[in-house]
């Protein structure tokens, strides 16, 4: 009997603390990010923190080092400490259960940048369409080639969301040429400059004609740039992500262009949605930011 009372009291306490938490003046958000080891994720974390600060919210950033198990634990923890959870998922399926659990516990979830496989489980998705980014990038490359030619593709890790989406965009753009543009090479360089450099060197070695290197991120594009420069070849390279280094290369004319996925806009949208959810307002199920092409004509606006 005594034990039952103790249990009851403990439960009450937990519930009350939840109520207290929900009624605090400043909203508390947790941003669960997949990792913090490349330019994109670091920028995202910074933009997220800045946007929250501007909105008067408290933002905690936790990173999962690409470990889905770790991220699930972090989400479970955030349920107890936060008003809204923003998640950049490690795996599009792996977080589903944790997302549902959070929602059922009454904590809204905003999915950031990478959509989960069942978007209906979360409150909203704030991101960008990878397919659109890929399409924009490839479309420009095809225009620059004059509508026909052959391209070499440097891809992200096969099967990753970014790779799949961007490759789908490439396919759409290439299909529109009705066979005028062909793919000379296509391989993953796992987002890294070193691997891209070696692959590009080896492809150039074959003597097969390449009119453009279209790369799914800027790091790999810089590897392709290096390989072509080493061989004194003038082959246009196309990047994606708009990292500082890539923008500088655009300015110097070494890289043709980079596509910005507008990380700041995505972060801003996430924080806006989180604020609305905290206040109990409705949000649309999907908010997509626009991609931006940054080339020689507008690079100065973006170079810091």
């Amino acid at each position: 009997m005594k034990r039952m009372v103790a249990l009851f009291l403990t439960l009450c306490l937990i519930l009350m603390s939840g109520v207290v938490l929900a009624q605090t003046e400043t909203p508390v958000f947790t941003f669960c990010i997949s990792h913090m080891t490349n330019a994109f994720t670091v920028t995202a974390a910074e933009a997220m923190t800045a946007a929250a600060e501007a909105a008067g919210a408290k933002m905690t950033v936790v990173e999962a080092a690409q470990d889905i198990n770790k991220q699930v634990s972090q989400i479970e923890m955030a349920v107890n400490t936060s008003d809204v959870i923003i998640i950049e998922p490690v795996s599009t399926d792996g977080v589903l259960a944790a997302v549902s659990a959070a929602m059922e516990a009454g904590v809204p979830v905003v999915i950031f940048n990478q959509a989960i496989s069942d978007p209906s489980r979360a409150s909203t998705f704030c991101g960008v369409s990878n397919a659109d980014l890929g399409y924009m990038q490839m479309k420009r490359a095809i225009e620059d080639m004059g509508g026909s030619g052959s391209v070499a593709l440097l891809l992200g890790p096969l099967g990753s969301d970014g790779q799949l989406g961007r490759s789908a965009g490439y396919k759409r753009a290439i299909d529109e040429t009705n066979g005028a543009v062909t793919i000379a090479f296509e391989e993953t360089a796992n987002w890294t400059t070193e691997e891209a450099l070696v692959l590009a060197e080896n492809w150039l070695q074959t003597g097969i004609e390449i009119d453009a290197f279209v790369c799914q991120n800027d790091g790999m594009a810089m590897g392709a740039v290096k390989a072509t420069e080493d061989k004194n070849l003038k082959i246009k390279c196309y990047g994606l992500d708009a990292t500082d280094d890539a923008l500088r290369a655009v300015k110097e004319g070494r890289l043709e262009l980079s596509v910005s996925q507008n990380t700041e806009a995505q972060a801003q949208a996430s924080v806006d949605s989180a604020m609305k959810l905290w206040a109990g307002e409705e949000v649309p199920s999907e908010i997509l930011a626009e991609g931006l092409i940054i080339d020689a004509s507008n690079v100065d606006e973006f170079l810091k």
Binding site: T37, N38, T192, T193, E194, L197, G219, M222, G223, K226, D245
Partner: peptide, 13 residues
């Protein structure tokens, strides 16, 4: 040397 070859230094390298 790798930094020189790839003209960048990345912590994941």
């Amino acid at each position: 040397l790798l930094t020189s070859r790839t003209v960048s230094g990345s912590p994941i390298t």
